[in-house]
Design a protein around this nucleic acid. Sequence first.
DNA 1: ACCTGAACACCGTTCAAGT
DNA 2: ACCTGAACACCGTTCAAGT
Lengths: 228, 228
Amino acid sequence: MVRKQGRPKAGQEALTQEKILRAALALVDRDGVERLSMRRLASELDVDPMAIYHHVASKQALLSGIVDLVFAELQVRPEDGATWQQQIEAFAHAYRRLAMAHPNLVLHLITDAEAGAGAALMANELLYRALAAAALSPQMVVRAGDLIVDFLNGYVLGESTGRLGQPGERGEMLAQLDQQPAGSFPTLRRVFATLRNTDALANFDVELAIVLAGIEVLANRNGAALPE
Amino acid sequence: MVRKQGRPKAGQEALTQEKILRAALALVDRDGVERLSMRRLASELDVDPMAIYHHVASKQALLSGIVDLVFAELQVRPEDGATWQQQIEAFAHAYRRLAMAHPNLVLHLITDAEAGAGAALMANELLYRALAAAALSPQMVVRAGDLIVDFLNGYVLGESTGRLGQPGERGEMLAQLDQQPAGSFPTLRRVFATLRNTDALANFDVELAIVLAGIEVLANRNGAALPE
DNA sequence: ACCTGAACACCGTTCAAGT
DNA sequence: ACCTGAACACCGTTCAAGT
């Protein structure tokens, strides 16, 4: 329990920002953001709590650093022969995979805008390239891009907070519904009646397909494409 | 600063759950969720911090209570002559209005699934009724409903965290872009070049319209509607 | 029954002091 | 230059004590 004071001698590993961020990410992945504290992190690193402040400015900066770290993993290799729909699907899947690799961080991933800003740039470049290939006007490229990002954020947020617990079950909602007076919420009952014990499945892909279909409609309806 | 101890006499207003929740919501609306603490709330109510625990079980329960309170305000009057698109638009606008009335709470509104569960039931009933009217199969009603909710959540989250600060400016992103080496992010530059100083506008409605167009495509493509 | 006040086990962060 | 340790101003929550 006794630690050396002062600068570590050669041979001892020094504390670095990278090492701090990695440890913090591991802690968040394991226990959740709310269990991340400077003091816990320090004890994880076997270091005085205040040592961390020499490498990161504040807890806020620590979290942004983790977000950056995770966003840096986002890589979509642009396939050349792919249609614009396939490009967007590839991006969407990469984004979802990234988010679900760190479910406890999803809220911050989505929310901490100025962290991941660099990654956001790359993400939008990919997205806009695909949308421009769909022959949308610049205005519509931006709107369609925003829509896709909004949808993705909403989806991964729902998924990470366990909106639907397990395949097939729509847990809380069905439970709630069963407590309501008979005759209330008729449409809900009708829909779920035909759905109970239906396997839940590629919801993500279906929702994305609807969005893409909507964008396609707009593309066909809309003359002014991006100038080359 | 000296307060009476024990049960308040007749004539003095007693502390109630309702009063606590209202004060907490006001505090959140004014200062943000992160400034909400039991102790601050108590001092706002001119009461010992621990008095609150007699009416709400924990801070978590307090937050859920606020979320419930806000969701209870969500009311969409179903217009009879409306098309299913108009019904969904009405719902979407009501949801967005609700969220933007309490921007500091949006994250919890979206995230705290088991709070607002009752409101979620009503919301989904409205949504499903509209989608069933679009002649979608039960499976597709659920997917389309989820998509709309995902989109709405993603949108209001972005809007509440100031994704785009003010009309016309895409602040952070443009700033970031200007710092990058020339030639990088070609599509982004091309899109924004034709967009700078274009007024930002009814983005929400455009994004929603794309979603509705996508759902319409699916409705036409898909035979098995809900049985009456 | 309802409110109080001390206490416990935590926080993030500052700052002077060590090596 | 880098790490430590005490200190400050906070937290949420428990529990015994007041009226």
